[in-house]
Design a protein around this nucleic acid. Structure first.
Length: 537
DNA sequence: AAGCGGACTTAGTACTATTCGA
DNA sequence: TCGAATAGTACTAAGTCCGCTT
């Protein structure tokens, strides 16, 4: 790198850090002041320490005088080189990776070779928080074997530590937990990281099944629970009033519970942690919610609420500052304690599972499907239902870089097809009159000769029909693409929707399950695959 | 009953593999 | 058959919730 226009040779540790940093030059992280600040603090700290050790003085003090371009160029070159490797080299790497996965990616659980969810420890680098994160750009240290605890059967051989000169931190034999290995992430306040079994494992499958069993159980209690909170909206006790209001929101809008958060995390909220500034009331019953939820995703929704809910929200805002808690008498613990008293195993998050599954089932039931529909058309219906769930749960994704371009491409194709259709129509008319028109050679934009139109009326009609079908298909594609531009269907499919609803629907409508679930999801939900077409949630 | 550590689920994005269409 | 677009997977951050300690 250069400092103040002069080349500098960095000590190895500082160079490593600066290399991590410079690889983000062209990303969104570089637009955040916090990212630079946290990086540079650590950078200077390393340089100071190094200088002190050598009895010199560190001159690098101002990030504005730093030019990390040479490092960035180097990192980008490496990336390009990697992409440009020969097919053999790539195949060789793939094979090696597969061998590692075979060796480290499985555990023997109750005699069965079971796939792990993850088996690599998180590599060192810069912490990349989501949204406006106070710790963005801080250094995430390399994890050493000594930092790692392994959880094995007491009679299992201890795996050899693969790093020479090192040994495992601790070996435990705890069959009351599901993790196989753990370490602490110093960046996120010693947050515990784990190695788990994969989603296809029996342990995870059973826990998934029990999640949906609880949600199904809520179906049986929901009428009573709703009656209770509707009554409690009018309770004279402020804490109970707040609890009922929060439950109305959790049930109707599928908000998360909303635990308290630390100062050194991004400022995001859920239901219980909503602040006065996050809602705007308009009489008689309109409420606009606008806040950042999990992953700093914006939740912006204007809804009509129950008149008592509106009255209560107005009351909770009274004499408060925008930064004050809306539900100052409430936290997730007492909401969940109350829910538990109404139904065994009931917590706030169960409402999301329940409402997601119920919504999909209801939406699918409303779709009118017929036997002569193509699988694509049926899937369009399914995805529309899935989309309603994703919107309910506020599952978003960023618009892909190529979105506008690919929409434009579809338009161009439709236009070309329409133009060709006009020509075919005219040609058909002429042919029918018995005058077969002379066809001049036509060329496409690449200079290739286009196919001539047939002179047989039936063949012309067939071609017109083909074009009509193509136009219809493209239009459908366009609609769906635009609909799903900012909506992510995968999150609800993986976590919230009882897979048996989808399996039953697929069977009933002769849609191959592969159209709905990827290989990984089919492996995750083997327990859902054999329900019959009449199964209901 | 607050508050914290720990265990587990849920989340979007970055990366990689596969499919599509010229 | 190739490159671009799309689908699918890997990754790890960020939630929820429980139970223990003070």
């Amino acid at each position: 790198m250069q400092y103040n226009g002069k080349n500098v040779t960095l000590p190895a540790k500082a160079e490593e850090l600066a290399t991590y940093y410079s690889q983000y030059t062209e990303t969104d992280h570089f637009t955040k002041p916090q990212f630079h600040e946290n990086f540079f603090n650590k950078f200077v700290q390393i340089l100071d320490k190094h200088a002190k050790k050598n009895g010199t003085k560190n001159e690098i003090k101002d990030i504005k005088k730093c030019n990390f371009k040479p490092l960035h160029t180097y990192v980008m070159q490496k990336k390009e080189d990697k992409a440009n490797r020969s097919a053999e080299e790539k195949a060789k790497e793939k094979k090696e990776k597969e061998a590692v996965a075979q060796k480290f990616g499985y555990a023997i659980v109750d005699g069965h070779r079971t796939k792990l969810g993850n088996y690599n420890v998180e590599p060192p680098g810069l912490f990349l928080g989501r949204g406006d994160h106070p710790k963005a750009g801080t250094f995430k240290k390399r994890v050493q074997p000594e930092d790692i605890t392994l959880n094995l059967s007491s009679d299992a051989p201890v795996p050899e530590c693969p790093i020479p000169g090192h040994k495992w931190g601790e070996i435990v034999h705890d069959d009351s937990v599901a993790w196989l290995a753990t370490w602490k992430d110093k960046v996120s306040n010693n947050a515990v990281k784990y190695v788990w079994l994969g989603a296809s494992s029996r342990v995870k499958g059973l826990s998934d099944m029990s999640k949906f069993a609880t949600a199904q159980n809520l179906k049986k209690h929901i009428v009573e629970i709703r009656e209770t909170y509707m009554k409690e909206l009018k309770d004279s006790d402020l804490a109970i009033k707040q609890r009922a209001t929060a439950l109305w929101i959790i049930d109707h809008l599928a908000l998360r519970a909303g635990n308290e958060k630390d100062e050194d995390q991004a400022d995001t909220v859920g239901c219980c942690s909503l602040r006065v500034e996050h809602i705007k009331l308009t009489a008689p019953t309109t409420v606009e919610f606008d806040f950042l939820g999990k992953d700093s995703m914006r939740y912006n929704n204007t809804v009509e609420v129950d008149k008592d809910v509106f009255k209560n929200l107005k009351l909770f805002q009274k004499n408060k500052d925008g930064k004050d808690d809306l539900f100052d008498e409430l936290n997730t613990t007492n909401v969940n304690a109350h829910l538990k008293s109404q139904m065994d195993g009931l917590t706030a998050k169960v409402f999301r599972t329940y409402n997601a599954s119920i919504t999909l089932e209801k939406e699918l039931a409303n779709m009118e499907l017929s036997d002569d529909m193509s699988v694509e058309e049926k899937m369009l219906m399914y995805n529309r239902a899935n989309r309603e769930v994703a919107i309910l749960c506020n599952h978003q994704r960023t618009v892909s870089k190529s979105h506008d371009a690919s929409m434009g491409k579809i338009d161009t194709q439709i236009d070309a097809d329409k133009e060709q259709r006009v020509k075919l129509e005219a040609h058909l008319k002429a042919v029918k009159k018995g005058k077969i028109p002379e066809q001049k050679d036509e060329f496409d934009e690449k200079g290739k000769k286009k196919k001539r139109m047939p002179d047989d009326p039936d063949k012309i009609k067939k071609e017109i029909a083909k074009i009509d079908l193509r136009i219809a298909k493209q239009n459908t594609k366009k609609l769906e693409k635009e609909d799903l531009k900012t909506v992510s269907l995968t999150t609800s499919k993986i976590n919230y929707i009882d897979p048996r609803i989808s399996v039953a629907w697929a069977k009933k409508n002769n849609v191959p399950i592969e159209k709905i679930f990827t290989k990984t999801l089919r492996d995750k939900f083997p327990w859902a695959m054999d329900v019959d077409e009449d199964w209901t949630f």
